[in-house]
Design a protein around this nucleic acid. Sequence first.
DNA 1: ATTTTCAAT
Length: 189
Amino acid sequence: MIRKLDSVLLAQNKFIYNYKNMRWAKGRNETYLCFVVKRRLGPDSLSFDFGHLHNRTGCHAELLFLSYLGALCPGLWGCADDRNRRLSYSVTWFCSWSPCANCATTLTRFLRQTPNLRLRIFVSRLYFCDLEGSPHVEGLRDPRRAGVQVKVMSYKDYFYCWQTFVAHRLSRFKAWEGLHTNYVLCQEN
DNA sequence: ATTTTCAAT
């Protein structure tokens, strides 16, 4: 069983504040990304690592994650086994904002060149997708065309994140008001 | 009706 120190877990209030899927998320000037890395061995996949990060100035969370990928997934590149095959990984991430157009393009290009990496994206809120003609709607469409599963987080996803990434102690995830309604609204985009 | 967003100060 994977066991990590509390310091790598998110504080409860930080999780709630950043992932709350309210329609106008005032003051959420950061983006958090919680991730699970699994190594795929034939039909089985084993949990390999997990954690979270947030953007730094000038680097969106998604691209920051990509910069850590080599360390998170040893053998993803190069030939890692005696039969000259690369190792396969699957990554699931939960992002507080959906990817912007630029990140989506970079991500899509990256994944096309890395077929041994499978990615699933869950997003809590849609980044600038309300505006008419928003280029960031591509943040949802572009990766999908490359075979990435992109979904809006629902109650069960928040629940899972709470259990997996948050220092919850013994407290159970408690849904905020409007969670489900906001989820439904987001999902329609 | 309007509010908000991977800051800028």
